[in-house]
């Protein structure tokens, strides 16, 4: 009997998850026409890039620098055993551009800006601001949701590039200033090993996908939230959890594709 209970509980969860995915997809379909309309009023998008992107910039700069410095220390510790410390720059650059830049930026964005987006839209719903707009004959999807979606989608790739660049600079400072590596070797090894097409562009594609997914989840959860304070707080948590899982899952899939040269 207990097994039946566990299996049926699992089944219910799967069905609920698939239903939720369907809701999110239908929401995206309803949002699609609004995306075009929002682009024609780009000033609204710019405002939202300011709210989300620029405010996430500080945490991205600080985290990027620290991650780069940690990579340099840890990488040096391993490479020096094989007398290959000249490849430190390459190791750091590949780790950041291919993986850590896009993934960590997306995770930070989901926690800092994605949750805020959900809470903001959820609260606008809870305080009848969205209903009020509807009654003023203003469709909230293009007016409120679409600019926020665009802003997130545009901001994440930019932030990811900044994260990687700052991380490499941080690693350079540690490698040359602290570990005594030669700066020229650091850069030249990096340049000979990092491919713009496979590594830099691959990382950029990843961050574009992450930006889309995180923004989508954030605005969906906000718009779909129960219009109560409890509903909004639950939606905020769901945004962070689902975004993080989606980022890591998609990263695995995309990495597998990219390594096989597709």
């Amino acid at each position: 009997m207990r097994i039946v209970g566990i299996v049926s509980g699992l089944g219910r969860r799967v069905i609920a998850g698939v239903t939720r995915l369907g809701r999110a997809a239908l929401f995206l379909g309803r949002l699609a026409p609004g995306l075009g309309i929002a682009l024609m009023r780009f000033r609204l998008v710019i405002q939202q890039i300011y709210m989300t992107g620029v405010l996430t910039l500080v945490i991205v700069l600080v985290s990027g620098a620290f991650v780069g410095m940690i990579l340099a220390l840890q990488g040096y510790n391993t490479l020096v055993r094989y007398d290959a410390q000249s490849s430190l720059g390459l190791l750091v650059a590949l780790s950041l551009t291919r993986e850590l830049g896009p993934v960590l930026t997306a995770l930070l964005f989901a926690g800092r800006a994605g949750s805020a987006l959900t809470a903001e839209i959820g609260l606008m719903k809870a305080t009848e601001q969205l209903d009020g707009m509807e009654m003023m004959a203003v469709d909230p999807l293009p007016r409120v949701v679409a600019p926020r979606f665009w802003a997130g989608w545009i901001a994440v790739p930019l932030l990811a590039m900044i994260f990687s660049a700052v991380g490499i600079i941080g690693a350079y400072i540690v490698a040359v200033g602290d570990l005594g590596l030669d700066g020229g070797v650091f850069w030249s090894q990096m340049q000979s090993g990092v491919s713009v097409r496979d590594d830099v562009l691959g990382g950029l594609i990843k961050s574009v996908v992450f930006g889309f997914v995180v923004s989508w989840i954030a605005v969906f959860e906000g718009y779909d939230a129960k219009p109560t304070s409890e509903g909004v707080s639950r939606a905020t948590t769901r945004t962070v959890v689902s975004s993080s899982l989606a980022i890591l899952g998609l990263d695995f899939i995309m990495t597998a594709f990219m390594l096989r040269g597709l």
Partner: peptide, 24 residues
């Protein structure tokens, strides 16, 4: 708007650095 402009420029500069200085 100015801050957003700066942000976009910073992102593009970072991309340029990754492409030119880091990559080949």
């Amino acid at each position: 708007e100015f801050a957003v402009g700066l942000f976009v420029v910073a992102g593009l500069l970072a991309l340029a650095m990754l492409a030119l200085k880091v990559g080949n």
